[in-house]
Amino acid sequence: MAESLIYNVLRKPDFQRETASWPPDKVAELVRSFLEGDLIPSVIMWRSPISGSIFVIDGAHRLSALVA
């Protein structure tokens, strides 16, 4: 339940491209790498001091694939 609360405050800045642009095989490759303990590049986030929203500056595709 707490995980969904965190996910609900995540936002994507306008400059980020749509996260639906990864083909299924690329998503599967990332998930496989994650499950095998391979190195996954960092996800960079920033919390707005005004709204409390967390903006995903880099790594929105990776995060979306792992959440899905």
Rank of each mutant, 00 (worst) to 15 (best):
M1D: 15
M1A: 15
A2M: 07
S4R: 13
S4T: 10
S4V: 09
L5M: 03
R11F: 12
R11K: 15
R11A: 14
D14G: 05
D14A: 14
D14F: 11
F15A: 13
R17L: 14
E18C: 15
S21E: 11
P23L: 05
P23E: 07
P24Q: 06
K26Q: 10
K26P: 08
A28G: 02
V31H: 01
V31P: 01
L35P: 02
E36S: 04
E36M: 11
E36K: 06
E36Q: 10
G37P: 03
D38S: 05
L39H: 05
I40M: 06
S42N: 09
S42A: 05
S42E: 11
I44E: 00
M45R: 04
R47P: 00
R47F: 00
R47N: 01
S48C: 03
S48L: 08
S51A: 03
G52L: 02
S53H: 03
S53E: 09
F55Q: 01
V56T: 09
V56F: 03
G59T: 14
L63S: 09
L63V: 10
L63N: 07
L63G: 07
S64R: 13
S64K: 10
A65N: 07
V67Q: 12
V67C: 04
A68G: 11
A68R: 09
A68T: 13
